[in-house]
C-alpha cells in the first residue's frame, strides 16, 4: 500500500519510493528511506495534507506525494 492510504494513527514501514531526481532526493533528505517507521498523525482539516511522524519530526506531505511512497503497515521496527 502507499503512504496516503495509511489510516490515521497507524504506523508503517517505508518499503520503497517512486520517482527520481531531486524530488526523490528531497523526500529522502527528510529521512523517508526504506526501513524507516512512519506514523500518520494528523490530517489537515481540509483533508490534505497529512502530517507524518518521521524520525521524531512531524512532516506534512500532500496526498500526491504520499502516493509515491510505498509502505508496509503494522510492522514495528526498532
Amino acid at each position: 500500500m502507499t503512504l496516503d492510504e495509511l489510516p490515521h494513527d497507524a504506523e508503517a514501514v517505508v518499503t520503497s519510493l517512486d520517482g527520481s531526481g531531486p524530488e526523490r532526493r528531497r523526500l529522502m533528505d527528510l529521512g523517508l528511506l526504506p526501513g524507516i517507521a512512519v506514523r500518520a498523525e494528523r490530517t489537515s482539516p481540509l483533508g490534505d495534507p497529512t502530517a507524518y511522524r518521521v524520525r521524531g519530526s512531524l512532516i506534512a506531505l500532500r496526498r500526491s506525494q504520499a502516493r509515491g511512497i510505498h509502505v508496509e503497515p503494522g510492522v514495528r521496527t526498532r
Binding site: 533528505d29 529521512g31 518521521v54 524520525r55 521524531g56 519530526s57
Partner: peptide, 9 residues
Amino acid sequence: ATRLERNLN
C-alpha cells in the same frame, strides 16, 4: 537536542 537523529544527518 530533542531530534538528534534527524539533525545528525
